[in-house]
Write a protein that binds this DNA or RNA. Structure first.
Length: 459
DNA sequence: TCTGGGGTCCTAGGACCC
DNA sequence: TCTGGGGTCCTAGGACCC
């Protein structure tokens, strides 16, 4: 536990709906519901005026319409929300560089990392008041709720307690008193399933939870969850605020207005989803090793199928082909409600089509290449850079495969094909990962013709 | 016409290696 | 050949969050 209330949690009130009300004055003080407008849409955010009619996040849109027919129903404009969110996050970074966004409308700030000298409760409260004014200014009028305390748990619960447009600083030492009468569901991580299990153990409040032994919680909820809850229940939370967490996966999914059973149509859809994932990979200069297909059937049962390549890729053809194969492993004949494609095992390189040659049906060495990248073969220990590239000034395309060698780990092999535009594919050669002949092609070698593929910046 | 879309983290079993 | 433990990786599913 920290000695001072130095963790701040900020939450923008009814964020999506508030942005819409800001941009469309006619909607101000009126019920606004933002979410999917299709037959299977759900509510993303309801303005407080709509909440008065019982409209809630994650509620089916049909039900929201029934409860509040006169509300404005809007589909989300994420580009605008992102822009507004960036302005708020920038304002938070003025307080302290250690800002951990949890979503577009929420973030933690570690005030000890900033230049604020006085972290007494009264000083922090006045700082938070200023911050609310700043948020209002940089967002064009949006309100935020702020909680401050000695831990993430306390700060988050505190910001919830005074919503909307609220502010609560929890004095050090007052944490247990605040928490113990509250229902266990206030603890982030205690959802319906956990709450039900706890209820059956006779645990309703955080106070009850604090009286249960850790061993019993671990037995009931598993090691990680049990241990975490045992600590949190006693307000023992020393989790740090972590700025700049790297993405672990990228995914795209679509729920269809009507179930799809036609295999040809499903094939088209999976290709489109794979392409969208690849666009995002390219935009964020990432590539990944594991492709996952998600299939939600007509009855809401959900299945995933995944496969891991020997090395990372962002190649549309490779990902699409794999996604199609994974989809074929699921029985979709009774109708599919949702399809998704995701990529994980992300590598932080500008990646090109690893194993791209495999999808080239005219590839004379396809068989060889297939053996080379057998999906069960484990060769990669780190990011690799691969793919066909033009070498400036030379009439040659190099394709490189393999793994580990970029880091000199010696775990993998590297296969290089030399092709020329006039003679077509040349022989494939396999090198040991540490073969000095490869050095000129390493992305880590300065001036390597293969090190970068993007054009130099203009001007 | 019940139940979005984007994520994170955990668990459990099996493969595989030492 | 058997037993066995530890560690890591992979896969599938589930809980949870906003």
């Amino acid at each position: 536990m920290r000695p001072q209330p130095s963790i701040l949690h900020l939450d923008l009130d009814a964020f999506f709906a508030a942005v819409e009300q800001r941009d469309k004055p006619s909607l101000r003080a009126k019920p606004v519901v933002v979410g999917g407008l299709g037959p299977r849409g759900v509510v993303a955010t309801a303005s407080y005026e709509a909440r008065a009619f019982g409209v809630r996040s994650a509620m089916r849109m049909a039900e929201a319409r029934a409860r509040c027919p006169h509300a404005a129903f809007l589909s989300p404009r994420f580009t605008i929300y992102r822009r507004t969110s960036r302005a708020v996050m920038a304002a938070l970074r003025e307080l302290s560089p250690v800002v951990e966004p949890l979503s577009l409308d929420e973030a933690y700030v570690d005030l000890t990392a900033g230049t604020i000298g006085d972290l007494s409760p009264s000083a922090v409260e006045s700082l938070a008041r200023d911050l609310k004014r700043t948020v209002r200014r940089v967002t064009g009028g949006l309100t935020a709720s702020i909680g401050v305390g000695t831990s993430k748990l306390i700060a988050k619960i505190a910001s919830d307690l005074r919503k909307p447009d609220g502010l609560l600083v929890v004095t050090p030492g007052a944490e247990t008193e605040l928490l113990s009468p509250m229902p266990v569901s206030v603890i982030p991580g205690v959802g319906p399933a956990t709450a039900e299990r706890l209820r059956r153990m006779g645990v309703h409040t955080v106070g009850d939870l604090g009286r249960v032994g850790e061993e019993e919680l671990v037995r009931a909820l598993g090691k990680a969850h049990g241990q975490a809850l045992a600590r949190l229940a006693r307000a023992g939370d020393d989790r740090p605020v972590v700025a700049e967490r790297e993405a672990k996966s990228i995914s795209v999914e679509d729920t269809f207005d009507h179930d799809i059973a036609d295999p040809a149509l499903l094939g088209v859809v999976i290709e489109r989803l794979a392409s969208r994932v690849c666009e995002r990979l390219a935009r964020e200069r990432l590539s990944g090793r594991t492709v996952t297909v998600k299939v939600r059937l007509y009855d809401f049962t959900t299945h995933t199928r995944s496969a891991t390549l020997a090395g990372p890729t962002d190649d549309d053809r490779v990902i699409t082909r794999l996604a199609r194969r994974l989809l074929s492993e699921v029985d979709t004949s009774a109708g599919v409600r949702l399809l998704g494609v995701g990529v994980s095992g992300l590598a932080d390189w500008v990646q090109e089509d690893l194993f791209g040659a495999l999808v080239d049906e005219t590839d004379a060495d396809a068989e060889h290449a297939d053996a080379e990248h057998s999906e069960t073969e484990r060769v990669t220990s780190g990011p690799v850079q691969t793919g066909p590239r033009w070498v400036p000034g030379a009439d040659v395309i190099h394709r490189r495969y393999g793994a580990g060698w970029v880091w000199g780990s010696g775990l993998g092999r590297v296969t290089v094909r030399f092709e020329t535009a006039t003679t077509g594919p040349g022989p494939v050669r396999t090198f040991a990962s540490d073969d000095p002949e490869l050095a000129p092609y390493s992305p880590l070698t300065p001036h390597s013709p293969l090190a970068r593929t993007d054009p130099p910046p203009a001007g």
